[in-house]
């Protein structure tokens, strides 16, 4: 059917206007939207980058050699020469704190990566192999029933002697069960998804299913979990060093600095205060980043129909 050629617009009945009742949201670029919607992530990221830069450029930032003894200049309060004061051996606390960032960051990142990789492997294994599941998960339950810090202390004792490697290893073992459980739960829910069944129907092998369908789905929650593990590893490392079970006392780590100031902390709180402050800021930064990531990858929020 065609319209008569001479018909004018006026002869067509137009529907009444449909007014706008909601103002449209402002148009932003994706990056801006991400920044505005997840400000905590960006605050965390910036803080963390500052701390990282401090660790990397420690030799240039530090005002003195962190291990240089200066017996004449012991237990001084903060001053223009020593910004955070000096400790019982006359070492410059500012320089030691700056160098301490290295230990915290290396341990945090190291544990996060190692625990994620091993935990992912264990989680995949127990999510896919029924008989292994029971055994592996009971071991994980057993590990989880011991407080992480006690387990780490025990492991440090077994390994006799602190080094960055040993500290990372000890804390990693204590953190693995959390990752393994998380991965396993993701695997168990994803493997029931119809798209996994569809993959099987297409003839995809079990390894292919794991690699193409399951693994990518574990990445988002695993990344978020890794940041929390990183934060908790930094704290555990500080505690280990504080009680003398962690890094050798020659290495400036925040836990070590605090341990050295322990005896004097009522008279000279600055020795403990500054490393503690940096530790708190770093852990806060990592946690903020983790929270932001979690919000950003959460499908319920990400969907936004």
């Amino acid at each position: 059917m065609t319209a008569p050629i001479n018909q004018t617009d006026a002869e067509f009945a137009a529907a009444p206007d449909r007014p706008q009742i909601l103002t449209p949201p402002p148009q932003r670029s994706r990056r801006m939207a991400l920044l505005i919607e997840h400000p905590t992530m960006w605050i965390g990221l910036i803080l963390l980058m500052l701390v990282t830069l401090m660790g990397i450029f420690a030799p240039w930032i530090a005002t003195a050699d962190p291990s240089a003894l200066n017996p004449a200049f012991r237990v001084k309060p903060p001053s223009a020469d020593a910004w955070f004061g000096t400790d019982m051996l006359g070492r410059d606390i500012f320089s030691r704190t700056v160098y301490g960032a290295r230990v915290s960051l290396v341990v945090g990142a190291g544990v996060a990566i190692c625990a994620s990789v091993v935990g992912l492997a264990i989680g995949l294994l127990s999510g896919f192999i029924r008989w292994a599941d029971n055994i592996v998960m009971r071991i994980m339950d057993g590990l989880m029933s011991i407080p992480a810090i006690l387990l780490a202390i025990a492991l440090m004792t077994l390994m006799r002697g602190g080094s960055v490697f040993n500290v990372i290893l000890a804390i990693t073992i204590a953190e693995i069960p959390r990752v393994a459980r998380l991965t396993r739960s993701v695997v168990l829910s994803v493997r029931e998804q119809p798209y996994v069944e569809a993959g099987k129907a297409c003839g995809t092998s079990t390894l292919g299913i794991i690699r193409r369908h399951i693994m990518p789905n574990t990445m988002a929650p695993l990344t978020v979990q890794a940041t929390y593990i990183c934060a908790s590893a930094m704290i555990t490392e500080a505690i280990l060093s504080f009680i003398g079970a962690g890094m050798p006392s020659s290495v400036p780590s925040w836990g070590n600095i605090m341990a050295e100031g322990r005896a004097l902390w009522q008279v000279k709180p600055s020795i403990v205060f500054f490393p503690a402050l940096f530790l708190s800021i770093t852990v806060l930064a990592v946690n903020l980043l983790g929270d932001g990531l979690r919000d950003a990858v959460d499908p319920r929020l990400a969907k936004q129909v």
């Binding site: 998804q193 798209y195 569809a198 297409c202 003839g203 995809t204 193409r212």
Partner: peptide, 29 residues
């Protein structure tokens, strides 16, 4: 033989491109 399932939303892996999805049987065979 292959299968087409009921729910077109959950039977496609949301993290794969259409190319990867359709190439899946090509790869495995």
């Amino acid at each position: 033989m292959n299968v087409v399932f009921q729910d077109p939303f959950s039977s496609l892996n949301p993290r794969m491109t259409v190319e990867e999805l359709i190439a899946e049987p090509l790869r495995s065979h």
